[in-house]
Design a protein around this nucleic acid. Sequence first.
DNA 1: TTAATTTATCGTAATATTGCAATATAATTA
DNA 2: TAATTATATTGCAATATTACGATAAATTAA
Lengths: 110, 110
Amino acid sequence: MGVTKSNLFTKEVNQIAQLCKAMGHPARIAIIQELLIQKSCICNDLVIALPLSQPTISQHLKALKDTGIIQGEIEGASMCYCIAPKALIAIQTYFNQLVNQLNAIDTSCC
Amino acid sequence: MGVTKSNLFTKEVNQIAQLCKAMGHPARIAIIQELLIQKSCICNDLVIALPLSQPTISQHLKALKDTGIIQGEIEGASMCYCIAPKALIAIQTYFNQLVNQLNAIDTSCC
DNA sequence: TTAATTTATCGTAATATTGCAATATAATTA
DNA sequence: TAATTATATTGCAATATTACGATAAATTAA
C-alpha cells in the first residue's frame, strides 16, 4: 500500500515518529549543523554550503519547517532560517527518557 | 531520482540520519515502547500487541535490527527481541549535544 | 508422523521520497 | 524600467517505503 497507518497509533507515538523522520535524512542533519555553526542562517548560504541543488535544499527546508524544527523569516529578497528549539528539545526529552528507562530494566534477555 | 545521496555527506551525518530514519515510523516507535514495557520480548507478543500484520511487524523489526537498535535471539520456535542500548544512546548523545549547542547560541535571529 | 505454531521471505500494489530542470514569484540593483 | 538575485513551486523520473497475502522454514505439540 505504501501509506503509513498513523491512525492506528497514539498521538504521542506519531509525533515523535514524525520528528525522527524529519531528522532522518543526511541533508536535513547537515542543514541543522549549518544552522548551528552559522549565526546568519540565510537560505542561500545553505545552498552554497550543501552539495545539493537549490530546489532540493528548499524541499528539505520545507520538511524541517513543516515539523516545526526550523522557522523562517523573510529578510528582504532572502529567507532567514533558524532552529526552533522546542521540537528538538522534544526529541531530546524523548530519548533521555528512553535511555533512563533502559537503564532501569534488565536488557540482557537476548 | 528517489535515491538519497549519502556519499555527499560525512559518515557521522549519515549515521545519525540513519538512526533517526529507523525511529521515524510510528510502528517502530511502538515496538520500542513495547520492548521497554515487556520484559519478555517475544516477537509474537509484538504481533499481538500491535495493530499490523505479522509480515509487516517482521519487516519493521528487521529495519530496527539492521540499524543496531534492537537485537534478536532464537528462543526455540520463537524469536526473542530486545533493545541494544548502544544505538539509542548514540541518538540521545547527539540530541543532548545539539540542544546544548542551541543553548549556547543566539537563536533569536528569526 | 502429522498438525499447529512461530517467524522470515517473496511478490506485489499503492504510495512516498528524493533530486533536479524548468519556471514562477518577489525583491533588489543598475 | 530592465537585469539580477533569491527562493519557492511544478512536473517528472527514479527509487524507496509501507503493508499484506501467500508461502517457506523450522520448531513444538498431539
